[in-house]
Design a protein around this nucleic acid. Sequence first.
DNA 1: CGGGCAGAATGATTTAAATCAACATGATAC
DNA 2: GTATCATGTTGATTTAAATCATTCTGCCCG
Lengths: 250, 250
Amino acid sequence: MYSDVLFVDKNGKPSRAVASDPNLELSERVRNAFNQHARPFHDGAVILLENDECHSVFCVLEGWLSLSKSLDEGQTQIIDFALPGDIVDPAAADGITSSVSIEALTDGSLAAMPYASWERMTAEWPELHRHEHRLKGADQARRAERMLRLGKGTAEMRVAYALLEFCIRLGTVCDGGTPEFHIPLTQQQLGDFIGLSSVHVCRTMRRMVRNGILEMTDHMNIKVLDGDGLAQLAAVDRRALKGEILPARA
Amino acid sequence: MYSDVLFVDKNGKPSRAVASDPNLELSERVRNAFNQHARPFHDGAVILLENDECHSVFCVLEGWLSLSKSLDEGQTQIIDFALPGDIVDPAAADGITSSVSIEALTDGSLAAMPYASWERMTAEWPELHRHEHRLKGADQARRAERMLRLGKGTAEMRVAYALLEFCIRLGTVCDGGTPEFHIPLTQQQLGDFIGLSSVHVCRTMRRMVRNGILEMTDHMNIKVLDGDGLAQLAAVDRRALKGEILPARA
DNA sequence: CGGGCAGAATGATTTAAATCAACATGATAC
DNA sequence: GTATCATGTTGATTTAAATCATTCTGCCCG
């Protein structure tokens, strides 16, 4: 019954990840503009299909989206997730064709801004332009980190990195304390994200639990017991990663 | 002895890929601005290191660059290649830290434009702003296609896709006729690009040669005998891919 | 309440690709 | 000319992960 909340802690209360709005740093006029283009979506909804025409830039206001691509034989790779505050421009080089499919992983809402409006907005509001640029940098850094592990990392490294990435993006305290969060994904979907079979995702996470790195409750309610151990498995410097994939808050 | 030329055909003459300047579609004032920031680089030169500070946007004027990331144990993943006309902004979310290492694969030259200058240029010249946007779309589409195959594709699919991508990016005629081009990469580097060992790259390409899909001469001089076969192995629609990863020429 | 179902856990087997090893080729250096 | 080195080729072996198969769990629904 997580379909209509984003994150819950082990007691079922919304965690601070949902409490803080990542768009808050933006001025009211920008947020108003977003709200004027807002529309709700539901868990499982298909927002856009790969290769379809797309005429808008999206900003996630609430909920999780997945950006994915599939092969004919039905195999899917999740390219990225879009979380609240993220801006998604799926267009390929022609400016029209979407390079990914966009699907809702939870209930939520997004702002769909036609290209013309979007260009006007970014031209008019430098803060929005800067914000978009920072988010693009975060996107690029995140995807490059994942590509590195997709090409060269072990299963353990891929899982560990993905969990750390979630941990950082959700804004859960990740240095000191024991971060705890929920990800609205099945093991199959997590596998589609990091290029592993669901079976192998399961085994790998179980092993981490046995080794005292994690604790898992319900479906994908994750508590990081040993952050340093996890970072070591992921082969990342947590502090540096945070700077690279989290747009600096004003 | 390919270190100082970009592409040569089987006779050693420069191919049309080097003959046509991808920046030609830009106005003279933009090209002049690029030329004012131009500086040469040499095969093997390290332009920038992952995690270093970076204060410029780069535009490749001539030659090939690789954008890569490495694990501590020395394993490298090439995230993308930058070819003449490509714009590279390596900054992560903080706007300063580079998310990739940049190295020269051939001799060539690039324009390094400090962020301040770059922002002035894009603000002043809408054509440049549009051009940058198209290139970002191409980038995104390309990387997503590769991620899909990195996560879900066989060795054969990865190699075939990479070759098709080169074929399209180099602007060699890819429908009808037999495209032919040179890539300034070792099998090791090609493997680092598509997440395979050099040995497996070798075997896979040999098999393609045996099956009459390709012909290879010298080091990485490639002739595509059966473009349709190659596209089928890569699981792509060549026409569609072209639209997605090639910025439309005016 | 029991049946049906999606997701998860876990053992057994297969397979694609890595690794190891040996050798070939061509370029450069001495 | 010969030594050296990087690259490519090919065979043999190992290994990480996929696949197949079964059982378990909690959940929704008639």
